[in-house]
């Protein structure tokens, strides 16, 4: 297929992915909006007022970037993992596998679908947050860049999960037992300064720390880790995940018999 045809195939996958999550928006878009609103009310308003300042900002201002990031991470991940596993489970993935669409087109189609959901939910959550606080963006370039990179990274991770999953249980194990703890321990709710030295160092192994802090830097202009290091880390993990996804697709592992 020439480039134009590959592009049509890519657009087709993206359009189908978007149609899918819009069709079932009560399962895909609504839950994050509700959960995040609850976080804003409980942590920001009720408890936050007693916490006082964190990292030099009111607690509400401090948690909002982390919570937006949390929405992006979980939504881009779960969109790809459930959609791709679903099509593997129903064998509808064969529609793509028998077609001449290239592996990179298949992967990017799903990834962009997941990214778009991450961003859409982020916008909704941001809108909701405006009822509770003001947002002054420190650097739009960094905000947009980090959002795109992070959602891509977790969409790719969701793809890997989907390829390995054999049952619907397998697609909830990783989000529950790996992703959620990493997010909670990734500095969404607290500054690394609060941790004892040892645990602050351990936290540096958690990719979510870089994601949350890079984004917080974009919004507030402060970060617990150095910005170049954070961006380098996110890039590194994204490239790694992309390479692994391509390896899975090219080798046909768990997709072709």
């Amino acid at each position: 297929m020439n480039f134009r045809e590959q592009y049509i195939a890519f657009k087709t996958i993206v359009r189908k992915e978007i149609a899918r999550y819009l069709r079932i928006w009560t399962q895909t878009l609504l839950p994050s909006a509700i959960t995040m609103s609850l976080y804003f009310v409980i942590f920001g308003t009720l408890i936050g007022s007693r916490i006082g300042n964190m990292g030099g900002f009111s607690y509400m201002e401090f948690v909002v970037p982390g919570l937006i990031m949390m929405a992006i991470v979980t939504n881009s991940y779960s969109n790809v993992v459930s959609s791709f596993f679903g099509s593997k489970f129903s064998h509808a993935v064969e529609e793509l596998l028998v077609s001449p669409a290239s592996n990179v087109v298949i992967l990017m189609g799903y990834v962009v679908g997941g990214v778009s959901r991450g961003i859409l939910v982020a916008l909704v959550v941001t809108l909701v947050s405006l009822f509770f606080t003001r947002l002054n963006i420190h650097s739009y370039v960094i905000v947009v860049g980090v959002v795109l990179m992070t959602s891509t990274l977790f969409a790719l991770a969701g793809f890997i999960n989907a390829v390995y999953a054999n049952s619907f249980d397998d697609i909830s194990i990783i989000p529950t037992f790996v992703l959620t703890p990493l997010i909670y321990l990734g500095g969404v709710f607290y500054s690394m300064d609060l941790l004892p030295h040892f645990w602050a160092n351990v936290s540096k192994l958690n990719p979510l720390v870089y994601v949350v802090n890079a984004f917080r830097y974009g919004v507030l202009g402060v970060s617990d880790v150095s910005l170049p290091v954070a961006l380098a880390m996110i890039t590194f993990f994204t490239v790694l995940a992309f390479a692994y996804c391509m390896y899975l697709l090219n080798s046909g592992k768990r997709l072709r018999q």
């Binding site: 297929m1 020439n2 134009r4 045809e5 590959q6 049509i8 195939a9 657009k11 087709t12 996958i13 359009r15 189908k16 149609a19 679903g86 099509s87 129903s90 064998h91 509808a92 064969e94 529609e95 793509l96 077609s99 001449p100 669409a101």
Partner: peptide
């Protein structure tokens, strides 16, 4: 064996397949 998404509509299934072939 049937290998399409049972929640999609026939028209969408066929149009999407054409898209995968670059039409």
């Amino acid at each position: 064996e049937f290998n399409f998404n049972q929640f999609e509509k026939p028209l969408d299934i066929v149009i999407n397949q054409a898209g995968y072939y670059g039409l």
